[in-house]
Amino acid sequence: MDYLLHIIVLVGIYTVLAVSLDLLVGQLGILSIAHAAFFGLGAYTSALLAVHLGLPFPLSILFGMAVAVLISFVVSLPTIRLHDDYFVIATFGSQMILCSVFNNWMGLTSGPLGIRDIPKPLIFGWTVRSQVGFLALALVLGVFAYLVVSLLVSSPFGRVLRAIREDEVLTKSLGKNTLRYKVTAFAVSAALAGCSGSLYAHYVNYIDPSSFTVVESILVISMVIIGGSGSRWGPLIGAAVLGTLPEILRFAGLPSSTAANLRQIIYGLLLLLMMMFRPRGIVGKYSFGR
């Protein structure tokens, strides 16, 4: 039972991440390969604050989001003007730089050794210990992410994002400051990714840079594309499908050394086949990039 709950909590964490990325892919129509880095920023910030300062969970998650937003400005302000591919390449570079910081800033992050013994979340004097508690927490954050994103999507702000997706020049000619909209959307997306990272760090108690590499970024993109970008339930379905995949492979009885490779091959194949044969994803309405 605990095992099943564990999978559901992980899927919840991935859902928050996928929902946040879908704001960029599905609404704004831009691709970012830096999402695992923002996830990592949230995780590292709240883990460090909780370990060294003993900060309670609501505060550490807020700081995690704040740091993710701050760095998102550093990444997006100089690069958001870049056209399609070049923006993707720039986020790719940012992902590699941030991952290199996680790996090499020994004094702060302990590099590849990671941070261990991250305390269980402390919320207003109540410590979450059980799987059920974490399930509730993941649910709350998932609903929060969904609320934030659907409010944005149905607001005039979201309409402008979709207008930019369809025709940025036209949107600009209507007097919208498209740069500001893009930077804001990127920041909101990063904040939600950071929020998801905070929960992840507190849930697994131990983080190291290997959870925040470019491969993880591709995994989140796969979730969005496979589930269906720009749709309400697409990210949830994508996260559920790809989040449970490693566990299914484990039941198939593969040795763990080949399982990691095989998992990535399956992510890649699914992503590729989806783009070739069903670009809308499982439940999507909008095909990214067509």
Partner: peptide, 20 residues
Amino acid sequence: SSSPILFLASLALLLIIQNV
């Protein structure tokens, strides 16, 4: 397909081949 799609497909290929 637009260039970001080809980019993404290419990235998926890199991931697949690397792991193979």
